[in-house]
């Protein structure tokens, strides 16, 4: 039977490796490389990628999975459109920090309130979202954002960590702990973040708190027929955790298909 896996990170690859001996597996990823947050050069990515290719898994890298109707997955990429009839769909598309709405941050809608992955991506390209940014969060994305922002030339970074910082931070980051972000002030650009009794003056708010599954295949955003979710919201994301999540999903797929693990 055919299994479609969306997400070519460690989780998706591990799931594919488990299922490939018995099933026909195709793995999709919107970007043209495997590895997800762990990167395409990570030794585990390279090894798993080789293993799944040897096992006959079809890698559809650069194709965005857009729709699942319970029987087939529709994917669109520069190479064309593919409709893959499948008995099961594994959603292994990773996680993202919580959005402003999910954090319930009140106030107006000034410019400069930016998700951490965007701030990091821009900083890597030499684009700074603020000179005095306030990063919200305490985990991996928060630490990474502090590093990237300072490396890109930020003058002062404040970290607002509701649960305290759980990762090592670069020197010079001012840390405010134990309060949750309540509202932003300012316009047209943000001028302050309010949290508890604190008023943190800043010119950007970088959202790096918490993790939510990143799910955007229509028809598989929540539970659905034939849909298996594979992922871990552990912070930091580890290769071992991702492999485990992939293996768990593979077992769930087998349960759904009524098949046995290949010896």
């Amino acid at each position: 039977m055919t299994v479609a896996i969306v997400g070519a990170g460690i989780t998706g690859l591990a799931c594919a490796a488990e299922l490939a001996p018995g099933e026909r597996v195709e793995v999709f990823d919107r970007i043209p490389v495997a590895g997800g947050v762990h990167g395409w050069r990570a030794p585990e990515t390279v090894a798993l990628h080789r293993a799944v290719l040897r096992a006959g898994v079809a890698m559809r890298l650069g194709a965005t999975a857009v729709r699942w109707d319970g029987e087939a997955l529709l994917a669109v990429g520069p190479g064309g459109v593919q409709r893959l009839p499948a008995a099961a769909l594994v959603v292994a598309t990773g996680a993202r920090p919580l959005t402003r709405a999910e954090l319930g941050i009140a106030g107006g809608r000034p410019a400069g309130v930016v998700p951490a992955p965007v701030a990091c991506h821009l900083a890597e390209n030499g684009l700074l979202v603020g000179r005095r940014p306030c990063v919200v969060g305490g985990g991996d994305w928060a630490a990474r954002a502090c590093h990237e922002l300072l490396a890109a030339g930020a003058e002062a970074v404040t970290l607002l960590a509701p649960d305290g910082p759980s990762r090592p931070l670069p020197g010079g980051v001012r840390v405010v702990e134990g309060v949750t972000p309540a509202a932003v002030e300012g316009g047209p650009r943000v001028t302050a973040l309010l949290a508890g009794d604190e008023r943190i003056a800043c010119d950007a708010v970088v959202l790096a708190h918490g993790l939510a599954p990143l799910r955007n295949v229509d028809g598989a955003v929540w539970e659905g027929p034939g849909v298996v979710y594979a992922g871990s919201l552990a912070d930091p994301a580890t290769v071992a955790g991702a492999r485990e999540a992939g293996a768990r999903a593979a077992a769930e797929v087998r349960g759904l298909l009524g098949t046995e693990a290949a010896a």
Binding site: P110, L122, L128, D203
Partner: peptide, 16 residues
């Protein structure tokens, strides 16, 4: 970095 988010005074980035 010059791209405005909304009104032109508020851009996505700041000059670094």
């Amino acid at each position: 970095w010059e791209i405005p988010v909304g009104e032109p005074e508020a851009t996505l980035g700041v000059a670094s």
